[in-house]
């Protein structure tokens, strides 16, 4: 296997890192919808926390993308 094909395979494997954040974002919004449905009065406070956790999870996906790009072009 030459270097170019190994890079392609490595970049493809690095995108597996999107699986976890995908599940995580789904869980965050599911929990948000659940809790707002149960207690609409607390929507503001819960949404703030949800956005912070969303950003944390989303950052992991972008880190995976950055690593894939570094493997591919670095």
């Amino acid at each position: 296997m030459d270097l170019a094909s190994a890079k392609m395979i490595g970049a493809g494997l690095a995108t597996l890192g999107f699986v976890g954040p995908g599940i995580g974002i789904g869980l965050i919004w599911a929990a948000l919808i659940n809790s707002v449905g149960r207690n609409p009065a607390a929507a503001g406070a819960i949404t703030t926390t949800a956005w912070v956790s969303f950003a944390l999870v989303e950052a992991l996906a972008i880190f995976a993308l950055v690593i894939a790009l570094i493997i591919l072009f670095g």
Binding site: W51, F54, A55, L56, E58, A59, I62, F63, V66
Partner: peptide, 15 residues
């Protein structure tokens, strides 16, 4: 708009 705004924020600061 908020989702697009905060998604890159953490990565940019770490970078």
């Amino acid at each position: 708009g908020l989702a697009y705004r905060i998604a890159t924020e953490l990565v940019a600061a770490v970078g």
